[in-house]
Design a protein around this nucleic acid. Structure first.
Length: 547
RNA sequence: AGCGGGGUGGGGUAGCCAGGUUUAACCCGUUGGGCUCAUAACCCAGAGAUCAGUAGUUCAAAUCUACUCCCCGCUACCA
């Protein structure tokens, strides 16, 4: 076994203006959590870090509309999101906010360092400005008529037309008006700070090509951007809600959210380390393996801006892994909150247990940027046929058999025949092979491997027929009870709630999450151990689609 | 439009990067049988795919190359 690894896992920051939905969970939080839980079971020194992304125009406007301070607005969402994650079993070691003092400090530090090194310059830009709102308007805050002759759809955002699906050049929209108040914007100049992203083209390219841990398909995608020529990056906004530019002359400007939010990974991790009494938090970051779990919509930020900024400052190591997963579709159609084609975590949890969502998403989400489709019928089928009929059934038949035939007392094993030995071997194979998959972040394959182990156990039980084959019965049940214990450990990363339920039904010491992965290949439950009265683990799903 | 990903039995997917160990795997559905410990669950056997199309490379291609058709996603001044 490898030595103890020091690992920092971050989940992409959720924007603090809305609830957690299945898209967030699928691409980012669930994969990260499964990986983290597995690392904990493997005895590694791992932390799971995330936060809400608090700043930016949409939050500022929403808070204003609701008549609350942005601070209160984001605190509200932080609390709500935190609860959603908790109920889903997403186990953060810290879930903070990018508006924290720590992040302000680190962000300003980054700005100053980059400025000192000559990577930042000022330039005037001409931007749409709404006089009645007295606000500069990003593309998303200007609406108008699609400029394409064959479309001319009205009330479209100025960056792309939803009706014909084409992107719109900045300034090309017709009948432009402010999306908030409807008045016509004027052009106004403003001095902005720019980060010389273009200067990093060569080093970024080298880093991307050298890092063998990055997914090749995402890498190609990003390398293409570099080949087309990187543009320097406007890193300031004329807005009050944000981290102020650390310069006396521009107090009313703030740093763009994408300049500061990913620094929240570092600042939040360091906050945790400091709380735990570690002296050198920079050193801790730099001696850890860094994993940033993201969805592909933010691939550019994590593969280009983030590394470029770290390279520029040269104090914090770059990510080792950036596991990137695809877009989420519901019944084959794009997820969309505004079109009410959307499922929030909260909605889901009012109907089904968290583990059902974790199981289904884990089994259908590949380690690639391929899109993931959520289908209610498929959900129902997989829960009933794969989770319940395979795992649930095996656990239940073994425990009820032990309860009724042995009064709950695990029998002492007798001699092992070939099939018994083969099952014993399977314990080791499953533990080793599932670990290999999860270590490679192939979480879907890892779960399938565990399902295969459970299927093997069902076959074993069936072939052994302990209900009539009395001579071999003791050994069979002894091995099966042990297989159930092993399954509980193997499933813990995926189904933490159910794994713990199994643990309790088996009347085992402590919590399943405190066990060690590798002990799942051993026969730790000895003859004479008394289990608790078994109860049905899972309820079948019916009419999942009925909304 | 550019770029990225994908098209595998009735449905949904794996395999493709490192071509032969595949009689193309898995789940559902379907046909027949078994079992009755178990939530009509479990087990066994079978039917069903020339792996989008065309042309190549090769002793050998679902896997490599080129082109064509179709589907999906992304495109920095929202996040």
């Amino acid at each position: 076994m490898l030595g103890v690894r020091k690992i920092i896992v971050t989940s992409a920051l959720i924007y603090a203006n809305g609830e957690v939905h299945l898209g967030h969970v699928t691409s980012t939080y669930l994969p990260a959590d499964i990986f983290v839980r597995f690392c904990r079971l493997s005895g590694h020194d791992v932390v799971h870090v995330s936060a809400t992304d608090d700043f930016g125009t949409p939050i500022s406007i929403e808070a204003n509309r609701k008549g609350v301070k942005p601070e209160e607005f984001v605190a509200f969402w932080n609390k709500k999101d935190r609860k959603d994650f908790e109920d889903l079993g997403i186990s953060f070691d810290i879930f903070d906010q990018t508006s924290s003092e720590e992040n302000k400090k680190l962000t300003q530090h980054f700005f100053k360092k980059l400025d000192e090194k000559g990577y930042i310059y000022k330039q005037e830009v001409l931007q749409p400005f709404c006089e009645s709102c007295s606000r500069f308007l990003p593309d998303r805050y200007i609406k108008g008529t699609c400029p394409f002759e064959d479309c001319k759809a009205t009330e479209q955002y100025s960056d792309s037309c939803e009706a014909c699906g084409r992107p719109i050049e900045p300034g090309a929209i017709k009948n432009a008006h402010c999306a908030i108040c409807g008045s016509e914007p004027v052009k106004k100049t403003s001095k902005h700070y720019f980060f010389k992203l273009s200067e990093f083209s060569a080093v970024l390219k080298k880093w991307l090509k050298q890092n063998q841990n990055l997914q090749p398909d995402v890498k190609n995608y990003v390398l293409n951007w570099i080949d087309e020529g990187l543009r320097d990056w406007d890193i300031t906004r004329d807005l009050s809600w944000g981290i102020p530019v650390p310069s006396n002359e521009d107090r009313e400007k703030v740093l763009y959210v994408w300049f500061n939010n990913h620094l929240g990974y570092i600042s939040t991790a360091q906050k945790l380390f400091a709380e735990r009494g570690q002296e050198d938090v920079v050193e801790t970051w730099n001696t850890s393996e860094i994993f940033h779990f993201i969805g592909k919509d933010i691939a550019y930020h994590h593969y280009l801006y983030l590394p470029a900024m770290r390279m520029g400052v040269n104090e914090y190591k770059l990510p080792d892994y950036i596991p990137t997963r695809g877009y989420f579709t519901l019944q084959g159609r794009k997820f969309s909150k505004s079109r009410e084609w959307y499922i929030s975590v909260r909605d889901f949890l009012t109907r089904f247990p968290a583990d059902y969502l974790r199981f289904y998403l884990a089994v259908i989400t590949p380690y690639s940027q391929a899109d993931v489709n959520f289908n209610w019928q498929d959900f129902e089928n997989r829960i009933n046929n794969e989770l319940i009929a395979n795992i649930g059934n095996f656990v239940h038949r073994v425990l009820t058999f032990t309860w009724s035939q042995y009064k709950g007392q695990v029998p002492e094993p007798e001699s092992f025949d070939d099939l018994d030995k083969k099952l014993k071997e399977e314990f080791g194979n499953a533990v080793r092979e599932a670990a290999e998959e999860i270590n490679s972040i192939e979480l879907s394959k890892g779960l399938r491997r565990i399902l295969a182990f459970s299927a093997f156990c069902n076959k074993y039980f069936q072939t052994k027929a302990p209900w009539k084959n009395r001579e071999a019965c003791n050994t069979t049940i002894y091995l099966c009870v042990n297989a159930v214990r092993s399954l509980a450990i193997l499933l813990e990363p995926y189904l933490p709630f159910s794994a713990q339920k199994i643990w309790r039904q088996m009347n085992l010491e402590g919590n399943v999450s405190d066990q060690t992965w590798n002990t799942a290949q051993e026969l730790k439950v000895s003859g004479g151990h008394k289990i608790n009265r078994p109860k049905t683990l899972f309820e079948k799903v019916q009419n999942a689609q009925k909304q």
